[in-house]
Design a protein around this nucleic acid. Sequence first.
DNA 1: ACGTCTGTTCAAGAAAATTTGAACAAACCG
DNA 2: CGGTTTGTTCAAATTTTCTTGAACAGACGT
Lengths: 191, 191
Amino acid sequence: MSTAAAKQQEPNDSQPLWREAELRAADAMGRLMEFWGFRRHMGRLWTILYLSPEPMTTAELSDTLQLSSSAVSLSLGELVRWGAVRKTWLPGERKDFYRAESNVWKLLRRVYERRELNLVREASDAFLDAQRFLDEARDQLGGRDRERVDYMRKRVSRLRALTKTGERLVRLLVAGRALNPADLQSAEEED
Amino acid sequence: MSTAAAKQQEPNDSQPLWREAELRAADAMGRLMEFWGFRRHMGRLWTILYLSPEPMTTAELSDTLQLSSSAVSLSLGELVRWGAVRKTWLPGERKDFYRAESNVWKLLRRVYERRELNLVREASDAFLDAQRFLDEARDQLGGRDRERVDYMRKRVSRLRALTKTGERLVRLLVAGRALNPADLQSAEEED
DNA sequence: ACGTCTGTTCAAGAAAATTTGAACAAACCG
DNA sequence: CGGTTTGTTCAAATTTTCTTGAACAGACGT
């Protein structure tokens, strides 16, 4: 009965007994996601879906988390774009239903592939740009200034090596291969 | 001459030739840091210091990046707390000088140890809490509702396993050991 | 075709964060 | 000491991000 009632938008006073547990888990995931650079609601919504044996509607979600329908629509749409949530339709129902993609590892790989890889590549390109500017400057300078530019060139190239290493690391992660930090450290030596 | 002049707060029009390169690199790192959840200025300041052969003063830094002295003080202080920048003093100088910690790997480890480890542990604890609430609820329910709670318990315990795995992963990273994603995936099975 | 039910988009309002100048404090010099 | 230089803290102001309600659009059943 309580299960069935939960399906309708039910008055705030008769929450299912497990609601508290649900919310705690959702909030924990929300904090993780927020820290990781996503909207906090994405983590919360995903968790509610992940904990539900049945696909849910936006109405149930906004009821559970006390969110406006537009907030749900926004974050849910983003989750769908990231492949973290799937739309499904139940026969005889007009509403959209949603279920969580439950393979978290797959999700992680996708995010790293689409987002982190980009990020690190852009940084790498920017360092390359910086190097070009330094090369230009070097040609016009001599003496102490040229020495200084040479120092900077070494440092920038080390930064670039770092991002390249990061790129490699993310690629390995995305490919599901083993990571060996020893490789990573090799890019660094003291001064 | 230009080198010496840069030491004083110099009028905006006579920038050293390498300034552009410096700024590009600094901005790239700023974006990385911001994405990683730090103040963007932390990345920029660190980079300027990292590219300088000599320790620098706050005045030089605020001049280079066009930041107010309070902004420099704030972000620089945070960098010092993270061990990413060191104060040094030059004989005969009253000002504080700063130099960048140049072992980036060491920095990464420190951040993961202090920040990410905490984060993941808190999430883990929250999931544990959620489990307790579910156990309580389970005792008071029967039939479909109990089944539903049991489903949720399985799922929450999978989330908890996930954060535990994350914790292990961060520990390995911090210890500089090899990471094997095969271990990580083991925590997951479809439904 | 019309009215109803769903979901999305948008712009205004609210909330949160960053930024800054000024006040304060501390160290140093003569 | 008194004055100067340097660094930090604070609260106000700005910017940015989030949130929401209302308008819009699409699909469906009658």
